[in-house]
Design a protein around this nucleic acid. Structure first.
Lengths: 343, 343
DNA sequence: CACACGTCTGGGAGCGCTCCCAGAATGCCG
DNA sequence: CGGCATTCTGGGAGCGCTCCCAGACGTGTG
């Protein structure tokens, strides 16, 4: 905590009341838009507040209302991964906007590693925030387990945390998205459909891989040896694609578990002399607005919107804060395929 | 503001004191690591706090100390620009870490457009934060002007805001960086040195362009027609490079005002059949750790570290909060060239 | 005209903490 | 053993706000 210089006596509610010639109670009522205030008094108070440049002291208010007006957004991801992708930036902005609309502030907390956990927990449990939104995509993230013990409501993104009730999550239907992608490829007559999967310590990556495999199997196609796993980056995707080209030279389609990896696959295919979509069809996952439409050719990909996800998380948190029980504890949002030129 | 369920009586300082068999004052002293507490009492209080799961009420503390323990990080940039670049993500993480070390929280606020300004101002002036860190790179940003009226200390990144005292900024020496880049190219025997400049509504872009121009002139080289301006993106850089290749076919070096644009230039040069660095030397600006070393060939670029900048901003804010006058109001950090293979 | 009822107002209490101050306990000196 | 500094302790006040309650109005009803 840092020192603070004298703020030169900013006006209090009492000052406003005195200036307006009413009592503190009436001033409070006027400012909080309550009923049972005469128009005359209300006007006077509002004018006084304006004249004096009054703004209420949040600490004093919190002290009695037991609300902080702040929600924490916790991002648990090693630094290196966060920087490759504007994903969290989209999430942050969406969360900020949605919370601002509710008059709440967004408190961002990063958790890089185990050492950060105690401090984070202590803070979150210290009554500084009304609720917590968590992005902890990695299966078995110790933070996620710890967060379950919190006294404030918590809503998780994704579904890496599985057991236990009183656990609230919002996730996209990753498996269904993968199924749709593969089914689309099948419907186009593709049969040698390989995949570039994501890191298997993440639920979403696993689900996408499972969706791909299940759909192939139900079409009586053997998926053995048709999958490579990479790290959700462009470079990783490119490398994985090269390995696939070597192992499955006659492949005619790729399902990549995220758009950056699809971009990498595209690059590998291009340098191998394969034409997209003529020789090989490519489908991605994310529909990243900065990436998918700008690729060459524009990418067919499974559409999802992080902003929507955050919105649903906040809606759920709001219900918990109001003491209501959300209709579903584990919300799964539908996804659909956006077709462009790559497949 | 959102509703909050009953928190089921979390323990207060009074509870801890009673449990430990001491007074509220002693408990407070023990918890705040003050002097004049007997070891016996301290132990008892600490144990009690642990047993009860006590954590102090921040609102109550703020009310008397006049400190919130929070610092706002304000990012004024239209949404579209933020997403291309992990720059702000680096800034946020660095700020978060530096503030966490001081026991302060980071409150992130995004400002997309004019409409956001009144709400932002109202909040910042409402005593919710102890100080404000601002990234508002665009010259004439109305937010920057408004922020000057705040009652809490403000430190700006960059130097787009120029007039007025009581104005605190931390910037990199953009002009010097550009000079170093161009001088290096000159020392390598390059003479036809073009530049891909950044958006000229940003001080940093202007300064880099000015540095390039001044250095050429002092080497008695006419810069006329040797500059193109783009939007700090890879794609913009590629387009600008193409225009330059058309207009200045005999160019032998490029100074790009940021790394993504240098990457774009590299791409344009490659597709034009120019070899780097044999035919054309390329120098960037930023030394983006995710980009510069991974390009083909690895990029020679002007090194700067956003984390260092944020660190200095926080240091300056700390001085202001302590009521001290910082040694310099407008801190300019030195930059230096990192040479790799592209030049 | 008494009474009830809805509208409006002000004062008091209290949220949980830190700070100040008076005083108790302790140590150490001559 | 008295005196004095030093260490430690507890109680009171008060930060600025919201909420509760008692009471002062006004208006309508029997």
């Amino acid at each position: 905590m840092v020192a603070v210089p004298d703020q030169g006596g900013r006006p209090t509610l009492e000052d406003v009341a005195a200036y307006a010639g009413v009592s503190r109670s009436t001033a409070s009522r006027a400012l909080n838009e309550e009923i049972y205030v005469s128009p005359r008094a209300r006007e006077a108070v509002l004018a006084a507040a304006r004249d004096l440049g009054y703004s209420p002291n949040q600490a004093a208010r919190s002290l009695v209302t037991k609300r902080t007006g702040a929600v924490a957004l916790v991002l648990s991801e090693p630094e290196s991964m966060v920087l490759d992708d504007p994903y969290y930036l989209i999430v942050m902005r969406a969360a900020f906007r949605a919370l601002a609309k509710l008059g709440s502030q967004m408190l961002v907390m990063f958790v890089d590693n185990r050492d950060d956990i105690p401090r984070t927990m202590k803070f979150l449990d210290g009554g500084h925030v009304d609720g917590v939104l968590v992005f902890a995509p990695h299966i078995g993230d110790p933070l996620a387990t710890a967060l379950r013990l919190l006294r404030v409501p918590v809503v998780f993104a994704g579904s890496s945390i599985t057991n236990g009730k009183g656990l609230y999550t919002v996730d996209y239907d990753n498996k269904s998205g993968a199924c749709q992608a593969v089914e689309y490829l099948l419907s186009q007559g593709r049969r040698r459909i390989v995949t570039v999967g994501g890191p298997q310590d993440q639920r979403s990556a696993r689900d996408r891989l499972a969706g791909w495999e299940a759909t192939l199997k139900s079409a009586r196609i053997d998926p053995t040896g048709m999958a490579e796993v990479a790290d959700f980056t462009l470079h990783g995707g490119e490398m994985a694609m090269r390995r696939l080209l070597e192992r499955v030279p006659d492949l005619d389609a790729v399902f990549a578990a995220c758009d950056p990896m699809a971009a990498g696959a595209l690059r590998a295919l291009k340098s191998a002399g394969r034409r997209v979509p003529d020789d090989v069809a490519v489908v991605g996952f994310d529909d990243n607005p900065r990436l998918a439409p700008t690729l060459e050719p524009p990418l067919t990909t499974v559409h999802q919107d992080p902003a929507e996800q955050v919105g649903e998380m906040i809606r759920m948190l709001l219900q918990l804060l109001a003491g209501e029980e959300p209709a579903v504890q584990r919300l799964v949002l539908p996804v659909s395929l956006t077709t462009r030129q790559s497949a």
